[in-house]
Nucleic acid binder design. Sequence first.
DNA 1: ACAAAGGCGTACCGTATAGTACGCCAATGC
DNA 2: GCATTGGCGTACTATACGGTACGCCTTTGT
Lengths: 212, 212
Amino acid sequence: MLPQDCPLPIGRREANRATRREAILDVAHRSFLERGYAATTMSAIAASLGGSKGTLWSYFASKELLFAAVLDRATTLFQAQIAQALNPRDGVADSLHAFARQFLDRITAADAVALYRLVIGEARRFPETGRIFHERAPGRTRALLAAYLEAAMARGQLRAADPMAASRQLMSLCMGGCHQQLLLGLIDKAPRKAIVEEAELAVDSFLRAYAA
Amino acid sequence: MLPQDCPLPIGRREANRATRREAILDVAHRSFLERGYAATTMSAIAASLGGSKGTLWSYFASKELLFAAVLDRATTLFQAQIAQALNPRDGVADSLHAFARQFLDRITAADAVALYRLVIGEARRFPETGRIFHERAPGRTRALLAAYLEAAMARGQLRAADPMAASRQLMSLCMGGCHQQLLLGLIDKAPRKAIVEEAELAVDSFLRAYAA
DNA sequence: ACAAAGGCGTACCGTATAGTACGCCAATGC
DNA sequence: GCATTGGCGTACTATACGGTACGCCTTTGT
């Protein structure tokens, strides 16, 4: 009777199921990132959902599958945040400064650090995870940045060099300070001032190294 | 009767105890680095030792204390390996190339990667560990390198800049390739060729950025 | 309105783990 | 030599977790 009840061939049942699935992933996401894999319990997730364990298992047949689904979604979100960090501007210096600033902002956010920790910490138990994470997050960013650098090199704004290697170097330069300290738990939050200075320093060195 | 039986005021009892303690730490070290914290069980360690659980607990009153002792020893060993990577030679370029090569060799070794993974993965559960690791391994190396760079800057061989920041940048440049791939489990062992090339590339960029 | 699907609550199973208790025996110190 | 220390072996406790089973009830599609 009401066409807007079912604008797409999805019934309320399927819609509810999708919503529920997202809710589970939200809770599991938080728990895995906050506590790590081992310390996250299925019972706690079910309890936190308000539902029963049977329901949880009807969505995800095992803890490993739930973990995989969480990481799949998390890396997708991460990718979406990171990929748009490179907004070409007029000059190479301005573009790279903006990139470094945004890149550092993203990777020093609390959940990015927690995700990174989780992926590295469980890389032996879940080898696929490391691969997926890499190809979605740092790999994609590196490829985007490399494409930009290659164009800049072609225009003579930077000296000719391997754009992928250059891209990796710039990203490495960005990750040596706050990010490292966050990973090791030396600090809880990166001070804005430190991020700005660090991005500046990284790009300055990079531009000296790759001046035309 | 025999003075060499007790050259120091340690009886055979204490000596045996120290030996046993080392043996426990050896086994625990391997297990923690190979399997991670959660997947390492005290029972397995006791069984692998050939001894009984009572003995194990008489040395380390809990799994957490054993873990702390293992990491304490492991970071000390790591420090010993890393700290001597900087052997000043005639020219700055030669010195830094030698440093980068040795540094990369050390940090891409299997146990170094496993240790790094472990420290990062458990940084939330054991916050002290991250601090200790940092001050012993990367912090110490960075300080040594910074001292060398500062001297080179004073001699006019490099442009004047913050030596600590420069030190961190060189180390970051070394850690962006193989080390990253090892951490994420993309590769199991760093090819020698890649290490050499990467060290070369890192130092080249560094020297361009900090040329006098 | 009615039947089916699916969530809920709870109790349960098997297993694994940190940590304890205790009796026995060999190594150790005097 | 002899008493004691300490490791050995084993059995045990308590607990926690992943995963299952099942009966009840609300929501859903027709």
